[in-house]
Design a protein around this nucleic acid. Sequence first.
DNA 1: CACTTGACCTGTCCGC
DNA 2: TGCGGACAGGTCAAGT
Length: 291
Amino acid sequence: MPELPEVETIRLQLKKYLIGHRMSDVELRYSKKFEGNSKNIIGGKVTEVKRFGKALVIDLDNHYSMVIHIKLTGQLIYRGPNLKNPNTLSEKVKDGLEGKHTHIIFHLDKSGKLYFNDVRKFGWIKIVKSEELKVKSDFLRKLGPEPLIDEDNPPENILTKEKFTAVVRSTTIPIKVLLMDQRKMAGIGNIYANDALWLAKIDPRRKSSSLKTKEIDNLFQAIGCVLKKGIEKGGASELSFVTPDGSEGEYQNHTLAYDKEGEICTRCNKGKFKKIKLSGRGTYFCPVCQK
DNA sequence: CACTTGACCTGTCCGC
DNA sequence: TGCGGACAGGTCAAGT
């Protein structure tokens, strides 16, 4: 669910809504997954919202930043003056904006609020000095290069076709498992890994090092293609993903292979999508046209 | 090092 | 209807 396209969708909205707001108070209702001193961000004004893989970074003008990872079921929802349209609220926000799954409320100036909800409590938020982001966050430090050109990362941190080729040739683990390894490349999770492999006509179980140059090229293209489509559709609201304005994404209606067990493959019209487990994760593929 | 499994959580769905 | 169990997917720690 929340993979690169979902987190990017959140980032784009948070940028619109949060920049310029000043943090007036942090209400910690469940603090087990909150690290750092919340007082350090009070008074700071939001200057930028960035994304690194599946993590978000909110920069404040007082030299502190918040690193946020929403994992599977985290939600960041904004209410306040920058919301132009009527305030929609998806029913995926289980108990409403201030229900039992609301763990943190960031109170902003001008009556703004940013809610952090998370049914499964896997998501985390960490406060660090902006200049120490990469030092203090293990997650950010170990993160691999970004598969899409983006403004937050310097060119040397972009996953080029050459880098991708080198990574794929470096290991024998199944190609799907490699795609989802955040240290090798950032942002790809289960949905987009399944879809990219289908698009590139590659069997997810293949040993990475067994891919031919042409297959690697196709897969590299396919990754860019599915991630961009995910962003275009506003992410996939399969489980609990909602955007900061409280609405849902559309990609779940456009998946290529993910969650299609038993359906006939739309490309070859022969294969029936199979579901297997690969490294513990649900894996979907067409046994006829994915070689 | 390579690779898999379990833990972290809770809601949902399926079968009996 | 109720209950137990499997399942969902992101990441890290621990195990083989």
